[in-house]
Design a protein around this nucleic acid. Structure first.
Length: 985
RNA sequence: GGGCCCGUGGCUCAGACUGGUCAGAGCGCCCGGCUGAUAACCGGGAGGUCGGGGGUUCAAGUCCCCCCGGGCCCA
């Protein structure tokens, strides 16, 4: 036997939500739940670690966490032992740059003067402070993760796992040191990855110059090249042309210039030259091997030293006819494409620029100058040598440092690489093994890109990060890669308390090969390495949790925004493939971005950013959760206050459903669900709907179609329960027939009780409140979180019955329309409804669900039949036929209508007196005309029952009414009626 | 320049993978009802050539191509 208690009438989430959060915290609900699920089948969720760059999460990040939370709650509801460790990506440049700013630093020198140890501790402090603060914000939205035991990439255990991975890569022969042109920030003095570079391009003004390279051995023939980076000319070693394009030799002022035919007109226009003459035309490929003289050779020593350079090479892919002259100046030291082509042709690499972006001694005259500042001097020198054809300026997108906005340069440096080019196909294959939601997230967006993948630069010349665990002998160059703190201890006898720089930098040992000094190379690692190893490093594998890891690898589920396809999803794939030869996750849900109300991206600096606390100030936590969870997850989501308010109203309807039900059910003994055969068809229907809902929620949650699941439960509670079932149930629940009232009570209780854990996936706070206040029985657990999701039972699902109810809804609609047209209000009972249809299901529906039609259409009889030909009828059509309402009013209809009017008046008066239905009883006295008397007489029982009246007496004047009665005069259908109500003490 | 996503009534969005009861929902608006869920609830109505054009098909928001607009990723 179960009982429910009355639920607080008003929906005040602002009040109960903080109370519930506090209760969960104090009662240690999640900890106990985790404990309770131990030993069950496991579900491994891996949190994509947010970067703690601020103390406040972006609302989109809250959305991200809510998505995760709904899946976690669902899986716990299915009985899984869920791994729900949150993560934090704590290393890297943003934190360093923020710390530098706070300390007023502008260069690496400032940091080294201050002390790397102090600086690193400051970085750690900042990251820790921010992640703690962000945690509190996530908790506010009822995100249930293991907040007390997060994985943080700065922890020693994490670093050790990362090192193990590096060692393994080294052992596989994929780790190598190489010299490549890389994007470099001259302020941060570090290499940046392609991914980091793609983050920010800015419009910059640069010179746009055409330069004449004199063909060796000729009198007056020149290759005409174009560049916007004159400072790369000291690094020039070749000119690229397109093999298949037409080139021309043009006479201008006595010079013969070579350039692409397709660019001729544009170049001449650009240079302001009107008179020129094409003297020859030929294919680009015929230029191959043509030698030229470097115009700055006498000023730049390195240019004199290099061999086998200054010639024309061919490239189909990097010579464009969209801009420039079709003769592309090539400096393999300052450009990736140039480097690639240069390798093919065996060209030398020249990069006379240092880490601060200044020319080195190799650049001779320009040594010591900042490269961008040298632009003008170089242009002057070209001009002085008669090599400048034209000089202009251009505003173009140029990469800048994503943290400090300094324009980047490309210079050739030694870096540590991980070889990937031979893994392209394997990576693509592995990505295909994961289940991508939506499907196109993986395949289409990954494919071309993966196939063009380059080797990965994992070294960075900074401080706050995982130290690259590579030690090299100063004497013989012998290399050792370290996989744990213990290995350091074994070699150097040093036990490090913190594995970061600078402490790890001081550790040296004797080279086993030559006895020289083994010293760590000073680099740290790309942060994408950090987050890429999270699938095992979060567990401390392989130094810790070995068995656990093997049991739950690959990870069951990850989800992040679509920007992470090439970010974290890829970096996990990369590490999984490198270290375990497989993709480390089974399914991926990719979600969208949160945009502002106008559809633009939300940014603090754009001022269109809604801080999470502001959301909380205006709407319930569950409202925001439901709002985001009902949207298609992989599409961008437009933030909307209006949308939130709308959702809040819908939640209040759900609340009201529970209020309504508890009003009728409270304090009743509610037994088990009666057997199906004994049930009223409407009850069979609502149970069918319940199980259909459960089934669809389970299915769609398992497909990560969260929006389908959340909308399903909303429509069940609102469309099926509130709009239909409860309207029928309210009369049945108060039925004089005990067994009827009892059956409906049990069914209603059952439906609402089973729905609660489902609701709690999306609106956990509201569900908990309802559970604790009204539905929790004595032997039940002390939180809705412990409840399992009831399994849908196919036996309970009756598609035909559900179909029939759809038809009944249409019939009710049509009858409402007919009444509306005929001007007959719904309160007025009508004699008869005739449904005309050819559809057998509809016929059966009218039969089986007659009760619903009688109540909802307010008619005394319903039948299927032929269209009536005589009498007064109102008619309306629905999809499967027509509805006819008999408008003829007999005594029965008039008195019936009157009785309902009287009941309504009495109810109003009860309410005015503050009397509670089911508790306090009344005596009623009525004075009115003959019809009123007859209505009272005929419908005495109904009126008395509905209004909890002990006695209803028809009186001829006030003297018959007890003095203490509450009296009121009413006008009912043009009649004057006096009603007195007296509370029975 | 390439790739991907989105563009459905005034607003916010489902439906598109698996062509055919898919032209829907909520809000807003208009009309009405109910009155012990009541600072709630219910019914009805108006309103969309599903961004534009072309194609495939007996049949296309749904598949294909092109274009326009918005966004993202990459060059």
């Amino acid at each position: 036997m179960s009982r429910v208690r009355q639920l607080t009438r008003n929906f005040y989430p602002k009040k109960y939500e903080p109370e519930i959060l506090k209760f969960w915290d104090e009662a240690r609900v999640y900890e106990r739940l985790r404990e309770a699920r131990k030993g069950s089948k496991r579900f491994h969720f891996l949190d994509g670690p947010p970067y703690p760059s601020s103390d406040m999460p972006h609302p989109g990040t809250v959305w991200n966490k809510i998505i995760k939370d709904s899946v976690l709650r669902f899986k716990r509801g299915e009985g899984y032992d869920v791994l729900d460790k949150p993560g934090w990506d704590t290393h890297g440049l943003p934190i360093e740059v923020m710390t530098e700013k706070a300390l007023g630093f502008t260069s690496k020198k400032d940091i080294e003067n201050y002390g790397i140890d102090k600086f690193v501790l400051k970085c750690k402090e900042l990251a820790t402070k921010n992640l703690k603060s962000m945690t509190e914000h996530f908790k506010e939205f009822a995100v249930s993760m293991d907040w007390d035991h997060p994985y943080r990439t700065f922890e020693n255990e994490y670093i050790e796992s990362a090192w193990w991975g590096v060692k393994k890569i080294w052992e596989s022969g994929r780790l190598y040191e190489g010299e490549r042109p890389v994007h470099w920030c001259p302020r941060c003095e570090t290499v940046l990855s392609d991914y980091e570079v793609s983050e920010s391009y800015k419009d910059l003004m640069d010179p746009s110059i055409y330069v004449k390279f004199k063909v060796r051995g000729s009198e007056n023939e020149y290759l005409l090249i174009w560049t916007t980076t004159p400072w790369t000319l000291p690094g020039n070693v070749a000119v690229m042309v397109h093999p298949n394009e037409k080139y021309v030799k043009v006479r201008v002022d006595g010079d013969l210039l070579i350039l692409a035919k397709a660019r001729l007109e544009a170049v001449m226009k650009d240079a302001g030259i009107e008179e020129y003459e094409v003297v020859e035309e030929f294919e680009g490929r015929t230029l191959e091997g043509l030698k030229y003289e470097h115009p700055l050779e006498d000023l730049v020593p390195v240019q004199q030293r290099i061999k086998d350079a200054h010639r024309v090479v061919l490239s189909e892919e990097y010579v464009t006819m969209e801009e420039g002259s079709g003769c592309v100046h090539s400096a393999p030291g300052h450009g990736k494409e140039d480097f690639e082509v240069g390798m093919r042709y065996g060209l030398p690499v020249v990069s006379p620029v240092d880490e601060r972006g200044r020319f080195t001694e190799d650049a001779g005259k320009y040594a010591g100058l900042q490269v961008r500042e040298a632009n003008n001097i170089i242009i002057e020198d070209l001009s002085g040598r008669g090599a400048l054809f034209h000089r202009g300026t251009v505003i173009h997108k140029y990469p800048v440092c994503w943290r400090c906005d300094t324009p980047l340069i490309i210079r050739t440096t030694k870096q540590w690489f991980v070889k990937l080019t031979d893994l392209r196909k394997k990576l693509l294959e592995e990505s295909g093994r994961a289940k991508w939601v939506p499907k196109w997230g993986g395949e289409r967006r990954f494919k071309d890109w993966l196939l063009g993948l380059e080797d990965w630069i994992i070294s960075r010349q900074r401080y706050w990060g995982i130290p690259l665990p590579i030690w090299r002998c100063e004497s013989c160059g012998h290399i050792e890669v370290i996989g744990s703190a213990k290995e350091i201890e074994d070699r150097a006898g040093v036990k490090l308390e913190d594995l970061h720089r600078p402490w790890v930098d001081g550790v040296t040992w004797k080279c086993p090969k030559c006895g020289g000094k083994m010293r760590r190379i000073p680099d740290i690692m790309d942060v994408w390495y950090d987050s890429g190893v999270s699938f095992f490093a979060s567990l401390g594998y392989p130094h810790r949790n070995r068995e656990a890891f093997q049991e739950i690898f690959p990870v069951d589920f990850i989800t992040e925004g679509h920007d992470q396809i090439r970010g974290w999803f890829f970096s996990l794939l990369r590490m999984g493939t490198l270290l375990f030869n497989q993709v480390p996750y089974k399914s991926v849900l990719m979600h969208g971005f949160m945009l502002d109300e106008k559809g633009r991206e939300m940014h603090k600096r754009l001022g269109n950013y809604v801080p999470p606390p502001e959301i909380l100030k205006n709407v319930a936590r569950d409202t925001f959760r439901f709002f985001v969870l009902t949207k298609v997850p992989w599409q961008d989501l437009r933030f909307s206050w209006k949308g939130l308010k709308e959702m809040e109203r819908r939640l209040s309807v759900i609340w009201n459903v529970y209020v309504f039900a508890t009003t009728y059910l409270r304090d009743k003994e509610l037994g088990q669900l009666p057997p199906k055969e004994e049930l009223d068809p409407v009850n069979r229907w609502v149970l069918s709907r319940l199980h259909s809902m459960m089934k669809r929620v389970r299915e769609s949650m398992n497909e990560y179609h969260l929006h389908v699941a959340s909308n399903e439960i909303l429509s069940f509670l609102i469309d099926d329960l509130s709009h239909l079932y409860l309207r029928v149930a309210r009369k049945k629940l108060r039925s004089k027939n005990r067994s009827v009232a009892d059956q409906w009570g049990r069914v209603l209780f059952h439906v609402l009780r089973e729905t609660l854990p489902y609701l709690s996936i999306f609106a956990p706070l509201m569900s908990e409140k309802i559970y604790l206040e009204s539905f929790r029985g004595e032997k039940d657990p002390d939180s809705v979180n412990f409840l399992l999701l009831a399994d849908p039972d196919n036996e309970m699902i009756d598609p035909e019955l559900e179909d029939m109810m759809m038809h009944v809804r249409s019939i009710i609609s049509a009858s409402g329309f007919a009444r509306s047209n005929a001007g007959v209000r719904k309160r007025q009972p009508l004699r008869e409804m005739v449904v005309v249809t050819e559809n057998d299901v509809v016929r059966k529906a009218v039969e089986v669900l007659k009760d619903v039609l009688v109540t909802e259409a307010n008619v005394r009889e319903v039948r299927v039949g032929e269209a009536p030909t005589d009498g007064k009828w109102a008619q309306a059509d629905f999809s499967e036929g027509s509805v006819f309402l008999n408008l003829e009013m007999g005594d029965e209809e008039i008195l019936g209508g009157l009785a309902r009017e009287l009941t309504r008046r009495i109810q109003l008066m009860r309410k005015e007196l503050g009397l509670t239905i089911g508790l306090e009883r009344i005596e009623v006295y009525v004075q009115g005309d003959e019809d009123v008397r007859r209505a009272l007489e005929r419908y005495y029982d109904e009126i008395a029952w509905d209004s909890d009246a002990n006695v209803i007496k028809f009186v001829s004047d006030e003297s018959e009414v007890p003095g203490s009665s509450f009296g009121k005069e009413w006008e009912v259908d043009d009649r004057r009626v006096f009603i007195w109500v007296k509370k029975v003490e």
